[in-house]
């Protein structure tokens, strides 16, 4: 049941070198830089996104994800969900408006898989790069892979059941796809919208691991050209281009200069509320993850930041 969470809005990623990271995310992935703050954080967004930022880069001594943010309908929903998160048992922290430039108050909370998330209702709207009055099809000065938007994250952790309960019962997400090993859920894909996933989790020992942040491209042709650019710039490749069984997206995976995995993808399934959850059996996991090779790859499975 929907609880007023609109969907995935932003991710703050830790990087080892901010200048190398900006070159990667802005000039190669093709996000637009929208701001920097007094902490040295860099704010970016995809050209189709209207809100001020969807990716925040922070220089740190380790790679990984600081937190992921979801936008909610309004401040009444924010207050109500804040109480629901406390009642569920989350550690909740209030982050004041303006801690991230252009963002209203945020409610930060932890999850059973050890990841930090936040919800917020207000963010400065700067508009799509093409504007909102008689807009052209796309901006003519896009760079690199021309990522259209930050789309979702895949996270690794141990307590998938606890996090499923948090996302479905408290935050109103739907379970769109899952992979099951007998009675044990080893992967879960969740959404609040028609996107097949706003966030996904895979079961692994440990907590708080970051598998990838994913960015939407327009077409399979753009996925292929992203692969060409990965070779031209000698970007660290993981796997692809290929297709997933889960969500059926067309995809390629690679790493930013600090070792955080990125995905660029196109296509895939849509979700409509009321649809049955799609289930992949453990013995079909190879096909579920890599639809063509039909076998798993150790690096894709085990490398996280």
């Amino acid at each position: 049941m929907q609880k007023g969470v609109i969907g995935t809005a932003h991710v703050q990623i830790r990087v080892l070198d901010i200048d190398e990271a900006v070159t990667h995310y802005r000039d190669r992935l093709g996000l637009l830089e929208t701001d920097r703050d007094s902490q040295g954080r860099v704010y970016l967004k995809g050209w189709t996104e209207a809100d001020k930022f969807s990716v925040v880069l922070r220089e740190a001594d380790e790679a990984g994800m600081d937190f992921m943010g979801f936008k909610v309908l309004n401040n009444e929903v924010l207050a109500s969900l804040r109480q629901d998160l406390i009642d569920f048992g989350c550690n909740v922290e209030d982050i004041p408006a303006g801690e991230l430039n252009g963002c209203g108050p945020r409610v930060r909370f932890d999850s059973p898989t050890g990841h930090m998330f936040e919800i917020f209702a207000e963010k400065e709207v700067v508009g799509r790069a093409t504007g909102h009055r008689n807009p052209d099809a796309w901006p003519m000065d896009l760079k690199g892979m021309k990522a259209t938007r930050f789309d979702h994250c895949l996270l690794y952790g141990d307590d998938l059941d606890g996090t499923l309960k948090l996302f479905t019962e408290v935050l109103g997400f739907w379970l769109t796809e899952q992979a099951m090993d007998g009675d044990v859920r080893i992967a879960q894909f969740l959404t609040t919208s028609m996107k097949e996933h706003e966030i996904a989790f895979i079961r692994a020992e440990g907590k708080g691991m970051f598998h990838h942040a994913s960015f939407l491209l327009e077409s399979w042709d753009d996925v292929l050209k992203a692969a060409d650019l990965i070779s031209m710039w000698d970007i660290s490749i993981d796997i692809g281009p290929t297709r997933h069984g889960l969500t059926h997206g067309q995809t390629i995976y690679f790493f930013d200069p600090s070792g955080n995995r990125n995905e660029t993808f196109a296509g895939g399934d849509w979700y409509v509320p009321g649809m049955p959850t799609t289930t992949w059996d453990a013995e079909k996991l190879g096909k579920a993850v890599f639809y063509h090779a039909r076998e798993l790859n150790e690096r894709f499975l085990n490398v996280t930041t």
Binding site: S236, F255, G259, T305
Partner: peptide, 10 residues
């Protein structure tokens, strides 16, 4: 061989 970027420990 992991991320090749100093992030994953592989």
């Amino acid at each position: 061989v992991g991320c090749r970027g100093g992030g994953c420990g592989f």
